[in-house]
């Protein structure tokens, strides 16, 4: 999804510092400090994790850290709520499979 460059009420969007991070090994970029989920959405990433039993895709639902649908493995730590975790340069973000594991580990 696109960034809103100019908004009729909020004006020009603040210019952040562009940093790079990886998503499943692929290098992507986003603004430092914005939620990881926002940077992912701008890059077209909608699936954050797959459920353990049915292997169903899940992504952002509430965007305020409440529902935990958007959790991913960030820098090796699973179950990180990406909608409220600020993006940092060099972060390693990975799709989560089940509650902790990576694909194949289930």
């Amino acid at each position: 999804m696109d960034r809103i460059a100019e908004h009729p009420i909020l004006g020009n969007s603040p210019e952040g510092k562009m940093v790079t991070f990886t998503f499943d090994g692929k290098e992507l970029s986003g603004y430092e400090g914005e939620p990881i989920a926002v940077a992912l959405r701008v890059n077209g990433v909608m699936v954050h994790r797959y459920t353990a039993k049915r292997h169903e895709p899940r992504g952002v639902f509430c965007a305020i850290g409440r529902c935990t649908d958007c959790v991913m493995i960030v820098d090796g730590v699973p179950n990180v709520r990406t909608c409220i975790t600020p993006l940092k340069a060099g972060m390693k973000v990975e799709t989560q499979y089940g509650v902790t594991g990576k694909e194949g580990a289930l």
């Binding site: 926002v38 509430c62 965007a63 305020i64």
Partner: peptide, 21 residues
């Protein structure tokens, strides 16, 4: 549960706080 189904509040958060569609 499909990604892309969001709460209306999530839409507001994305648009008005984080400046993305």
């Amino acid at each position: 549960t499909l990604p892309g189904v969001i709460g209306a509040g999530a839409a507001q958060t994305m648009m008005n706080l984080h400046h993305i569609k």
